[in-house]
């Protein structure tokens, strides 16, 4: 019989901590980015100030559905995180993430705003560029563990990374797309973009924006946690790995300009597919499964 603390209390705690750690990481992200640009940058707690402030602003909405959909983005992101920490099915997690994305896009399509429409469409294109890579990564994890359950990763005697290094790198692309970082920040970013204002976020304000921001953190944490699971036997090393990739994504963000959606699609698909397939072929040839 599994320990109730381990199987229930810990995941719930972890789930509750997800937004906080995510926010903290965003703060660190902004600090590091500032330093890379030889600035001092905002305090590490800045993202929390932003969200609290947004929550307290007078609410403007585009229709009464917008807040529900914005909450849906946060809710489904949290649900995906719950699926991860309760060690359920990875495919389920994928579907839930897609649902969260569709909620965000739907909310941005809700008003007749040209900017948020362009942003929404581009957000869909980002989904198009990372979703195949993510499904393939999950299937690769299945090849290594012979199970679609997250628990399968933990029952493996050795770290996943040794079997699937290519997949790990491919997940890095997913991370950058999910964090809306350059070169894949076509749909929106922290700052205003010249031609699309804030893209998919344009029509959110006040508490709806706060919820979307929270959802964004949770989703970032989700990908990072999956990456940490690549070293499941010792999660500390896993977390280190995830943080390393996080740092790499910041570096990439600062040295690459934004791509067009066509090139973004080409890049993620070619690199993602090649890395994963090469990895899997090697795995089969070496008989590692």
């Amino acid at each position: 019989m599994p320990d109730p603390v381990l199987s229930y209390a810990l995941p719930v705690l972890l789930l509750a901590a997800f937004p906080f750690i995510g926010g903290l990481l965003r703060g660190i992200d902004r600090k590091i980015t500032a330093h890379m640009q030889s600035r001092i940058g905002p305090p590490v707690l800045q993202p929390f100030y932003d969200v609290i402030k947004l929550w307290g602003k007078k609410p403007f909405i585009t229709s009464q559905f917008q807040p529900v959909l914005a909450f849906g983005y946060l809710g489904f992101s949290l649900m995906a995180a719950a699926i991860l920490v309760f060690r359920l099915d990875l495919l389920l997690l994928l579907f839930t993430v897609a649902t969260a994305d569709v909620c965000l896009v739907a909310a941005s399509f809700n008003s007749k705003s040209p900017y948020s429409h362009i942003g929404g469409m581009r957000e869909l294109l980002s989904v198009l560029s990372y979703e195949p890579v993510m499904i393939m990564s999950i299937i690769s994890i299945y090849f290594a563990t012979r199970s679609f359950l997250v628990g399968g990763i933990f029952s493996l005697a050795y770290p996943l990374l040794l079997l699937l290094p290519g997949v790990f790198v491919a997940m890095g692309f997913v991370l950058i797309v999910e964090m809306k970082k350059s070169p894949f920040d076509i749909s929106a970013s922290m700052h205003a973009h010249q031609e699309i204002v804030r893209g998919v976020f344009t029509e959110f304000s006040g508490y709806t924006m706060a919820m979307v921001e929270l959802g964004h953190w949770v989703k970032m944490m989700l990908i990072l946690s999956i990456m940490a699971y690549f070293w499941a036997p010792n999660l500390l090393i896993g977390v280190g790995l995830a943080l390393l990739l996080f740092f790499v994504s910041l570096v990439v963000d600062n040295i690459y300009p934004r791509l067009t959606w066509q090139r973004m699609l080409k890049t993620t698909w070619t690199f993602g597919f090649t890395l994963i397939l090469a990895n899997l072929v090697a795995l089969f040839l070496l008989g590692g499964v």
């Binding site: 500032a34 600035r39 001092i40 905002p42 800045q46 100030y49 932003d50 700052h191 205003a192």
Partner: peptide
């Protein structure tokens, strides 16, 4: 941006 000021546009 030290003070959290962002040009949000």
């Amino acid at each position: 941006e030290r003070f959290g000021i962002i040009n949000i546009g």
